[in-house]
Amino acid sequence: MRGYLGVDVGSVSTNIVLIDENENVIETLYIRTQGQPIAAVQRGLEYIRDRIPSGIEIGGIGTTGSGRHLSGIIVGADSVKNEITTHAVAASKLVPGVQTVFEIGGQDSKIIILRNGVVADFAMNTVCAAGTGSFLDQQAARLGIPIEDFGSIALKSKSPVRIAGRCSVFAESDMIHKQQMGHNLADILAGLCEALVRNYLNNVGKGKEILAPVAFQGGVAANVGIKRAFEKALGLEITVPPHFNVMGAVGAAMLARETANKTGRTKFKGFEVAEEKFRAASFECGDCPNLCEVIEISGHGRILARWNDKCGKWSNAEITGVKRNRIENLA
């Protein structure tokens, strides 16, 4: 039987899932990226390889997340898709009839509106990360509680305090103030949950028609305090689907299956990539005043890809001897 891999490389976590031909999720993995996307993908693949049930052969692999291009090159992806599309694909298949998807990750949050199984509208947070997981992470660290316990403690609150959630810098000073006033931990945590939800609904969800069923996914969906704050604010029941924290990877695997079925083969380089040495380097191109910081991935003594140049001369260029010399000179 064939299996399909989905790899979601986000700012905070790297997720890998394996699905079968009928889109059942067989194996999931959630690890922290820790700022090293290549190492995280390699680690993840190694882990998954040891857990693949016998008789399953990889028929395709797809990548997504902010590190999708990088990881796509490392693994030889069949499909490289943005995280909005993959989250929508996964939700529409795993949550029957879903009309609204909330996704809150480490650095970004999004809302996806589906109607009749098709994406009708979406929005993502703008430059600010106030309403995202890293905000909760920081506050939890400040209060000295493990993030895993955040939600359950918040649920014990009787009267949540009001904390300004518009900006995480303000929220922090507001929170410290509330602590000094003597509010208890549960009320403060519940207040943080409500602040995040308020900020999300006013910012990302602004003007969107939020209809049930609502699916809540992304790493933050693990926090029951946030789920309850959403239910309280909207008066709707919120569904946290199974595999909520790896939904992007599930969508990527589904799209990889689609692509591989169309082309009839996979570009997957095999699990050996987990042992290969890849090197990511960057150099500043000095050919024009834009001074692009070009990123370059090499492995096996060969340059595999380059990107991040505005004019496309590095990303499109065939890597010829002359160019390679120049790069070595620059590096």
Binding site: K81, E83, I84, T85, N116, G117, V118, V119, F122
Partner: peptide, 19 residues
């Protein structure tokens, strides 16, 4: 960020059409 949004927007239009 811009590329992600553009790609998703275009995917959405293709998806709508296909439906």
């Amino acid at each position: 960020g811009i590329v992600t949004r553009l790609e998703a927007f275009i995917d959405m239009i293709r998806w709508r059409r296909a439906a």
